[in-house]
């Protein structure tokens, strides 16, 4: 089976690099984007299996990225996990409303992080997500 590809959209290169290590060690392939616009473009071009998304970023805000991706026929099925330091209740509510799978706050325990990714990649979850959207 092919390696699952994960796109990390975050403006902190150090964090991206470290996270990349973690994900690659867990057997994932990683693509990265350092701002919102780059994130949307990479998602369209690479069609990753999952996206890790920050909120506060230059060029385009994380919520806007999520909204854009969920509107597009090419990208709307890609599960999105928020991973952000800005963990307010409003942000969380908005993220779920926009269709995010999980909302995690930095710093995140590696196990929780990997567990969430695993769950989000399960086909059943994606399917239900789609059903709900259609209903």
């Amino acid at each position: 089976m092919d390696k699952k590809r994960i796109l990390i959209v975050d403006d902190e290169p150090d964090f991206v690099r470290v996270t990349q290590f973690r994900l690659e060690a867990a057997g994932y392939e990683v693509v990265v984007a350092f701002d919102g616009i780059q994130g949307v473009r990479t998602a369209h071009q690479e069609k990753p299996d999952l996206i890790i998304l920050d909120i506060m970023m230059p060029a385009m805000h994380g919520h806007k990225v999520c909204e854009t991706l969920k509107k597009s026929a090419r990208t709307w099925t890609i599960p999105i996990i928020y991973l952000t330091a800005k963990g307010s209740k409003e942000d969380e509510e908005l993220a779920y409303k926009l269709g995010a799978e999980y909302f995690l706050t930095k710093p995140c325990d590696p196990q929780t992080f990997l567990e969430s990714i695993k769950k989000a990649l399960e086909p059943s979850t994606k399917l239900e997500r789609a059903e709900e959207k259609e209903s």
Partner: peptide, 22 residues
């Protein structure tokens, strides 16, 4: 929040080495 971001990186970096992942 500003402190959290670099802290997250440090923590994750050290964890990666510490738990033998790398």
């Amino acid at each position: 929040h500003e402190l959290r971001t670099p802290l997250t990186t440090i923590k994750e970096g050290i964890s990666l080495v510490f738990d033998g992942t790398l």
